Computed example of a mutant assay.
Amino acid sequence: MSRFVLYSIVVLTSLSLWAEGTTAAGDEAAWSEESNGLRARLSMRRSHVSNGTGIVVTYLELKNVSDVGNPMLVTVDRDGMTFRVTDPDGRDVPGMFGPFSGREFGTPELTLPYDSSIRFRIGPTGWGIPGDQAALVDLGSSFGWALPRDGNAYDLRGVLEIAKAKDDRSARGVRWHGRLELPRVRIPTGPEPVDPAAVGPLIKELGGRMLAANGRVSEAAMRELSLIDDPRVIPWYVKAVKSDRSGLKFHALDRLSRLEGDDALAGLKIGMATRGADIGNATTAAVAAGSAENIRHKAAVALARSPHPQAKALLLSMEEDPSEAVRITVIQAAARMESAESLALLKRRAQDGDPRVRGEAARLLKLRENGAEK
C-alpha cells in the first residue's frame, strides 16, 4: 500500500517559542476542530523553482490537546488522508494524471506527549514538473496539481481520518482515532515580498553559497536563489555554468533560459560548448563525456525557450552536435519555424546517420509538407 513520505519532523513542546496558531512563515493558520484530543492544520511554502514552475511543499502539524496524560500515538498513512484543491469560487480543481515516478514510503507511528505538537512535511516528489506554472503541489500519486499563472488564488483542503484500532493501547501510549477536517490553506503561487534594499545583498550571499564546494550548502542556496526573479542573479548563474559541476551547470541553464539579456545568452553559449574536459569529478572520461552531452542538450532546450532574439539562430547552429538528443531538439525547433533555412535543415537531417534523428526529421518534414499542401 502506498504511503506518504513524512520527514523533516520538528517536535514542538509547550515550551516552544512558536506562538499558537502561527506557521513557520509567520502567517496565521487555523487549527481544525478537536477530535479525541487531537487538532491538526496544514501549512505551505514555495521551496524552489524548477523548469520555471514554483515547487510548493506542504506540512502537516498535529497538536495533542487531550487532558489525558498518556502519550498519543498517531499513524498518518496514505489511506488516512485525502486532499482537494479549490479555485476562488470554491470549485474543485482537477488533479494531475499520468505516471508518478517517486517512491512512497511507510509512516512511523508518531508519539505526541501531553501538551505537545509535531510538524512534518508530507508528500514525496514524484510528479513530472510541467514548465512555467504558478505552482506544483505534490502530495503523492493520488494527489498532485499544477496550477496555472492566471492570477487566481487557490486553496488546499484536507481530511485526516483514522479508524479505531483493535489494539489501541501499547506501552508507548494510546493510539488516536477520529476524523479531522483540516482548514483550507492558501497555496503560494508567487514569490514572497522582499525588501528591495535587501535583494542585492541577498543575491550576493546566496550566489556565493551556491558556488561553495560543500554540496549541501550549494544545493540549499541554489533553491533559495531560484525564488528570486531579478537580473542581478544572472552573473551568478553564468559563474555556475562555468563551473565543472554538472548539476550546477544544469540548474543554471534552466534558470538562464527564462532570463532576458545578452549576459543570460552568454551563459547559454557556454553550455552549448561543454565537453567532457569541462566536467569535474567524473569517474571516467566516458562518464564525463556523457555528462557533457546532457549539459549540451539542456543548453539546446534552454535556447529553444529563451526570450533572446538570437537564441533560435544559435540553436540551429547545433544541428551537427555529436549528441542525437541535441540534434533532435534542433530539428523539433526548426519544424516550428517558417523559413527557408529551417526547411533546408530538416532536409539535411532527414539524411542524418542516426536512424532516430533521421526518422524524426523525416516525420516532421512530412508534416510540414502536408501542411503546406493544405
Rank of each mutant, 00 (worst) to 15 (best):
F143T: 01
R149W: 02
P191G: 14
L182D: 06
D138V: 11
R149Q: 06
L136N: 06
H177C: 12
D167M: 13
E192C: 02
L202M: 15
T111Y: 04
A163C: 00
R216W: 14
S141T: 15
S170Y: 02
P124N: 13
M96L: 15
A146N: 05
R186P: 06
S170D: 11
G200T: 15
P188R: 09
V159F: 01
W145V: 02
K166T: 10
A134G: 02
A134R: 04
Q133H: 14
Q133I: 02
A171K: 14
G98H: 02
A134I: 06
G131C: 04
G173V: 10
G178A: 03
L136R: 09
A163N: 12
T111E: 11
D138P: 02
D195W: 14
Q133N: 11
S117H: 01
S101G: 07
G98R: 00
A135C: 09
G151P: 00
G98T: 05
A146R: 06
S101K: 13
G126V: 11
E181N: 09
R172Q: 15
P94S: 01
G178K: 09
D167V: 14
E205C: 02
S101N: 13
F105P: 01
P193A: 14
G207T: 11
L211V: 05
G178L: 08
P201T: 08
P130L: 11
E104A: 05
E161F: 07
V217M: 07
P188W: 08
I122G: 05
E181M: 12
P191M: 07
F100K: 04
G178W: 09
S116P: 12
G151V: 08
N152L: 12
L110K: 06
A198S: 13
P201E: 04
G173K: 10
T111P: 00
H177K: 05
R172K: 15
P183V: 03
V217Q: 13
S117T: 05
G131A: 15
R169G: 00
I187P: 13
P108L: 01
K164M: 11
N152E: 12
D168I: 08
G102S: 06
D132A: 04
F105K: 03
Q133C: 09
L139D: 01
G190R: 15
D195P: 15
Q133L: 03
M96W: 02
K166P: 05
L112I: 03
V174S: 00
L202N: 07
S117E: 06
F105H: 02
W176P: 04
M96H: 03
G158C: 07
Y154M: 03
F120Y: 10
R216D: 15
W176D: 07
S170V: 07
D115W: 06
R209M: 12
R186S: 13
G207M: 11
G208T: 13
L160E: 06
F105A: 00
L112M: 05
L112V: 06
I162Y: 09
I122P: 03
K204Y: 03
L139H: 01
F120V: 03
L182Q: 03
R175Y: 15
M96F: 01
W145N: 02
G200L: 12
M96K: 05
P183H: 05
A165E: 15
Y114G: 00
A197H: 08
R209D: 12
L202A: 14
